[in-house]
């Protein structure tokens, strides 16, 4: 599971662009994760400029 730390995220959209499954979406000023499509690959966690995403076991 990917967790968004909303207090860190500044909604830039980097993570959305690298998601191979299209599981992320930037809705106005918050990030939405579709847990049904997310494959937990962790690319979004890697690319975040602020470290707002965390992969939870």
């Amino acid at each position: 599971m990917i967790e968004v730390h909303r207090e860190i995220c500044a909604y830039c959209g980097c993570c959305v662009s690298v998601c191979p499954e299209g599981a992320l979406e930037l809705v106005d000023a918050y990030l939405d994760i579709d847990t049904n499509t997310c494959i937990n690959c962790g690319l979004c966690v890697r690319v975040c400029p602020l470290g707002a995403l965390e992969a939870k076991k």
Partner: peptide
Amino acid sequence: VESKFSRWCGIDTTVPLREMETCA
């Protein structure tokens, strides 16, 4: 950059990790 519309239309717009410049 966070384009979803074309993806919904069936076009793969995924940017490879190494080709995504992440900025602050």
